[in-house]
Every structure is written in C-alpha cells, then in structure tokens.
Design a protein around this nucleic acid. Sequence first.
DNA 1: GAGTGGTCTAGACCACAAT
DNA 2: TTGTGGTCTAGACCACTCC
Lengths: 238, 238
Amino acid sequence: MQVADNPHAQPAFQQIKDHIVSRIRAGDWKEGDLVPTELELARLFGVSRMTANRAMRELAAEQVVVRVQGAGTFVAQEKYQATLVQIRNIADEIAARNHKHRSELHLLERARAKDSQAKQFDLKSGAELFHSLIVHFEDEVPIQVEDRWVNKLVAPDYMAQDFTKVTPNEYLMKAAPLQGVQYTIEAVMPSPDVAEMLRIGSQEPCLVLHRKTISRNKVASVAKLWHPGKKYRFSGEF
Amino acid sequence: MQVADNPHAQPAFQQIKDHIVSRIRAGDWKEGDLVPTELELARLFGVSRMTANRAMRELAAEQVVVRVQGAGTFVAQEKYQATLVQIRNIADEIAARNHKHRSELHLLERARAKDSQAKQFDLKSGAELFHSLIVHFEDEVPIQVEDRWVNKLVAPDYMAQDFTKVTPNEYLMKAAPLQGVQYTIEAVMPSPDVAEMLRIGSQEPCLVLHRKTISRNKVASVAKLWHPGKKYRFSGEF
DNA sequence: GAGTGGTCTAGACCACAAT
DNA sequence: TTGTGGTCTAGACCACTCC
C-alpha cells in the first residue's frame, strides 16, 4: 500500500474517511459536490476498491455523504443544528448522583377511559385503563410526582407490581418493547394536590414532562411528571 | 449461496443481521451471551467470512452486540432507556410552524467579564465579552428572550452583525464550528424585566434554557433563553 | 454503453484472548 | 497454541444513472 503502514497507523479505510472529512471541513468540497469515486479513491490511496467502499459506506451511514447508485457520492447537507436533551429514568438519575431513591405509592386503581383519554390512547371511551400516582424522593426530598395512565392491553400485569421496588418506567420497559415516544416539557404552576405532594408553595413553578410511549403498535402509557422548579432541572451535555 | 437468492431477497449480510436480532428479541440469546463466530455464521448461511464480518460489524456499530478481539461477540446490554429532547433554533422552529419570526434587539454592548462570568468562560476577570439581549416574536407574540454573552476571542465580529436578520445562534454556527454544548432546562419565575419583554404577569412561570457552547476549545457563548410557560413548550417524538 | 455504487468471494496476514 | 475478531486484496456480477 501507499498509505502509511507503521504499527501506529490508522487502518486504510479510516485514513480515507479522515481525508474526505477534512476536505469537506476545509471547504474544498461543499454541500452537493461530487466526491471521488471508489475506483479513484482506491487508486489514490493504493488500496483495493473494497477498502474504499467501506470508507464511503461508513461515511454514508454517518450522513457525511449521500450515495446514489449509478450516479456517484455527494457531500451531504449540513447536519441539523439541534441540542439534544437526554431525560433519564428518575431512579437511575438519582442513583447516578449517589443519592437515595425512594417512592411512595399514593394511588393504584383501575379506571375507565374518559373521552379525552380514550383519544390519547386511541381506544374507545370506557376502555379499561390502569392509573398510578407515585411520589419519588431523592434523599427524602420529594422530587417527582408521577401521574401515569397505562393501557391494559399492553401491560395487563401492571396492577400486580410493587412500585416501591420497581418504577413503572422500569416495569413497562421490560413488559413491552419501546417503539416510540412523544414528549412535551412545560413550565406550569402546580395544582394544590401536586404542591402538597412536592411540599412546595402554590406560587412555585413546576417543570412538567408529558411522556406518551408507544409499544406493540399501541399507546402503552401516558405519564405526567411534575418536578419542583427550585430543586429540579433537566441538564446534560454533548 | 444457501441463502434465498430471488430478486426480492435481502442481501446476505442483512439476512444475517435480521437473524441475530430476532434470536435476541426472541430471548434465545440474552445479555452477555456469546453469539456465533464469524466462521460459524459463514458456514451456517453459506457465505464468505467477509459477509458474516460485515453483518456483525454493523450490529456492533448499532450497539446490538459487543465484539472483543480474540474473545468473541456478545449480546450487548439493553439500550439505555432515555428520552431525547431536541431543541431547535427559535427562528427555524417558528418557520417550521409556518409562522412569522421577527426579533427586536434590545441591547448590544461590549462588557468586561465579572468574576462569575469569567469563571464560566474560563477567562480572566475583566476580559472583554459581547452581550446581546434580543426578544423573538412568533406572529408578533413575544416567545423568547435571549440573553447572550459571547467570547470575543471566538467571535470577534459579533458586534457587527444585524441581529434582526440573522439570529446569534445562526451567526455563531457559521463563525465557529460547534464542538460541544452544555444545557439546563428550568422552570422559574421571570424577573420584572423579562416579564415585561415577554408581556406576561410576574406570577406566570417561565421555561428557561441555559445553553453554553464550546468552539475552538474555548467557551464560545453562554445564553439564557426565557420562554413564557403558557405559550411555549419543548416537544417532539422519536 | 460507460461509469457508478451494492454486494460478494476465497483467500490472506495480523493482534489479541483464552488456555 | 488455538481461535477469535480486524483488516485487506483482486477479482467478480449486478442494478442503476446518465448520456
């Protein structure tokens, strides 16, 4: 090979990838430009076509380039500039902070879906749902009120769980493979009930996460998670 | 090949991937279990080792399996159950809703870093920073107050921009390649200034996003984005 | 029809792990 | 030492695009 071949060198396919990325970053090739063909790269780097193919195939998987059979390989559109906030299971999050998690079950009941709920679950009005209300504590400070409705068809054993030991989130994950999630984050004032459970004043804002999970092609669960604004925030980095 | 070879068939490497995934999903192989070696798969499916290698290499990239040279290929840990919230540039977000975006520049100044800011920017106290205060409107309704501090070393031309035409976010993206982001989402009550700019009452909660961006190995910008809780939420799905 | 990417083969040599 | 994955070759045939 022409490529560097000492023990510390990167594999050839990686060198090709790095080369393409740096040319794009340097502005030599711009969005939509044709980049060299596999054969050209193979000749350039003195490798077989399969090696050039792997490099370009991986860059396509990374969305750096777009490949069109018969036409060529093009520089992809700039990646969407978005911030991704990761929200974790409350018990794991507390454990990660080396704090103690405890939860109190305030309510666990069977209920009939009202019209608005039936719509959310894509079920008929009056269909049976499970309803739980749990308060989560971090070192004995209430940090989350979890108001959750669960589709009986997806998790028929929901009522039999011990939610002081397993969070509903953990149980649902095992009971039904997650297909999709819809979520909303809001800042709202607490209802008197929630304020009491979180032990906060009625004038303290709450950070609320609505989370709707899809499983087995059905709406599995709709949850409303209330957090005290003064003590809780979503945060992270990448 | 032994694998199906009709025109509608999947490529061999894909059939192998599907087979592995379905065996894991069916519970035949559990977390940590050894899956067949490349040679075994090659024999099983009647393909060359390279084809089996591609299948397993891609599954490793997808974090379905973990590969250890010399030891074997193992079923990976279950994927982390986390919700990823995507936060977009306010102007793009409004455009995506087919609404009109407009921004008002309330302040654009040079300033010296106070101690707390210097710490955030990892600069000496008194270093020069740029400071902008912009209100963003969606169909003439104030939807975001953007209070932003910018590192002069990263974006020296910041003061020369027309922020009624380009958002600071857009300018910074082009001026300095993004390396990393740290963020926090909170629910807080507005200061009197912010309440006035957002045209909300002092008792209405705000959804606040703190965002610190890293560029060229420096802290590029620290922004505090205030949104009226009643009119704005972060939402999405996956 | 010429050129492109998509896939595949049957070998090969290497680094590393378990023994 | 044996077996594993990591990489690579020099061919091959195919489907597709563009002229």
